[in-house]
Design a protein around this nucleic acid. Structure first.
Lengths: 154, 154
DNA sequence: TGTAAATCGGACTTTAAAGTCCGAATTACT
DNA sequence: AGTAATTCGGACTTTAAAGTCCGATTTACA
């Protein structure tokens, strides 16, 4: 239902939010989020073009969120890489005379609107602040609460 | 967001519901719904395998809804051709230890759940019974209320 | 100024969705 | 039995998404 690209973009920004305000290289992000490195590079470019992240070339460079995690919504991220595609005109290309969609596509668009609203009302900060003691991005093992960096196991 | 295949399947069944209980050939459905005929044939096969429609070969054959339009939901149709893909396990393949998803994927799955619920609670009869005077499938011109068949204009 | 670290951007390959084609099988009717 | 109407199913082509590769460019720092 959601494309790989959207999935990858979300993983990346959540990871960046988690590490904020530090910058991360795409290689680091790819490592942490299990996204193919070279493909992630493209996705990040999309996020940069849309103003969700800022990138910096050269030594010490990398990727940073362009705003506070509380000011970036899931919808911002989704729309940056692959707009949600609300249905505004008749997909059959018939004379939709402006506003009204047929009952079928009205229902479909309603569903999209619900998703859009949910995404718009959820910020990266919200995702990180989840009241449970679980860590973002699914690496919720037996509740280890430490913020572990590096790659070596213990 | 929704695939072409899902879109086509929905157009087909809505059209069938509109013409119910008469059978329609795939060629007729394709004509009416502006779906590529040969591709629609495949989609209809999927619907048939899932038990949403029944097909009949030979002269006088065609496609019919297998149940009353009030007993077929949008979700039935969607799941028949391309399951909605609720997120039940961690997409990163990490040890999701059963139930709990990370906050991010929990949100995504919540959105999917909302869509699923909306689709489950909408039947084809609901779509046709829309309180407005509009006709299914977007051919809502200047409120012509007649059920026009054939292909000639006027 | 040289070098290593990093993104950029274009070309390419792979995979899956969408679409096309057509002969085989089934069926109703005369 | 013959014929026309229909779906079935497999092979094929096309298109777009996903993924890979690598040289060019930018940057920090010794």
């Amino acid at each position: 239902m959601f494309s790989q690209t959207v999935e990858y973009a979300l993983r990346a920004v959540v990871h960046l939010a988690y590490e904020a305000p530090d910058a991360r290289t795409t290689a680091q992000i790819a490592d942490a989020t299990l996204v193919p490195k070279d493909y992630l590079a493209k996705v990040v470019q999309g996020l940069a073009r849309a103003g969700v992240v800022r990138t910096q070339r050269g030594v010490g460079g990398g990727v940073v969120l362009s705003r506070d995690p509380a000011a970036i919504t899931i919808l911002d991220v989704v729309n940056a890489v692959e707009p949600l595609g609300r249905i505004s005109t008749c997909p059959l290309g018939l004379r939709a005379h402006g506003v009204r969609l047929c009952p079928l596509h009205k229902r479909l668009d309603d569903a999209l609107a619900t998703v859009e609203a949910a995404f718009r009302s959820t910020t990266l900060a919200d995702v990180l602040a989840e009241p449970t003691e679980s860590v973002p991005l699914c690496d919720t093992g037996p509740a280890l609460k430490l913020k572990v960096r590096g790659k070596g196991p213990a």
